[in-house]
């Protein structure tokens, strides 16, 4: 589904200094992947680069989604291909309600007119599963939301937009147990044999709540080790230092 080949990336405002340095990654339908790594290893950069955030520039390599090169596409075109990214710190958009936003996003992504009744039933069903009160629909997007509310809102968007690949940027929220519970519940609701999940995190906590197929260790812009879920346990016990010496 997602294939990243020998990817080199630098931040636009820090010209020339590469953050990702030859990263390779393959994700197939039905799989749950976790990328872990110490601070500054390039985790957030990876998520942003897949979505072609203009702050990051690809200097080498390519990103393929379902066999098609996507690293020149605009973020909205990437979203339409079926990729979703949850933000660590979602943006606050005053004056736009959650309901309005979900509807706008859904119709843009599907390119179809929304059947309002069917759509709002779907959304309300998802809200119930995530334990979100209906009144949230009329709140302004992320305005005055607590950390947990923002997280729930991102997961609600994931379920509503129902992409093929979900990238969950949890770089720093790894230690917040509530956030982990919300995210793992969302993934369980979302996951099936035809879609895939990529979780980017600093800590191993999330793995206690989830069945994971692959764990990758990202150090200094490269994946230095890939294995099954048991790798997380090793990292939990020994930290990243042994990989960083490489």
């Amino acid at each position: 589904m997602l294939e990243i080949k020998n990817l080199y990336t630098y931040a636009e405002d820090d010209h020339g200094k590469e953050i990702l340095k030859g990263l390779n990654l393959n994700i197939n339908a039905g799989e749950v992947h976790v990328i872990m790594g110490p601070n500054g290893s390039g985790k957030s950069t990876l998520a942003n680069t897949i979505f072609n955030n203009p702050r990051y520039v690809v200097s080498k390599g390519e990103i393929l989604f379902e066999g098609e090169k996507i690293n020149d596409l605009k973020p909205n075109e990437i979203a339409k291909k079926g990729i979703f990214m949850s933000f660590q710190i979602p943006e606050v958009i005053p004056g736009v309600t959650v309901a309005q936003f979900l509807k706008t996003a859904k119709s843009n992504i599907t390119g179809e007119k929304i059947n309002l009744l069917k759509f709002s039933n779907e959304v309300e069903e998802n809200m119930e599963k995530l334990g979100i009160d209906k009144s949230y629909l009329n709140r302004e997007l992320n305005v005055g939301f607590s950390g947990g509310e923002k997280k729930k809102n991102e997961i609600l968007q994931l379920l509503t937009l129902n992409p093929k690949l979900a990238i969950l940027d949890e770089t720093d929220s790894g230690l917040d147990v509530d956030a982990i519970k919300i995210v793992s519940k969302g993934i369980k609701l979302f996951k099936n044999d035809n879609n895939a999940v990529l979780i980017i995190t600093h800590s191993t906590k999330i793995l206690e709540y989830l069945d994971v197929d692959y764990v990758h260790v990202l150090v200094n812009g490269k994946i230095v080790l890939s294995s099954d879920a048991s790798l997380a346990k090793t990292i939990e016990e020994n930290g990243y230092s042994s990989y960083m010496e490489n």
Binding site: F51, N53, P54, R55, K74, P75, N76, I78, A79, K80, F84, M85, F87, P90, E91, I93, F101, T104, A105, K106, N108, I109, Q157, L161
Partner: peptide, 12 residues
């Protein structure tokens, strides 16, 4: 903010 909304399918 623009990037966030674009990641949800909206054009710039």
């Amino acid at each position: 903010s623009i990037f966030y909304l674009m990641s949800r399918g909206l054009s710039e």
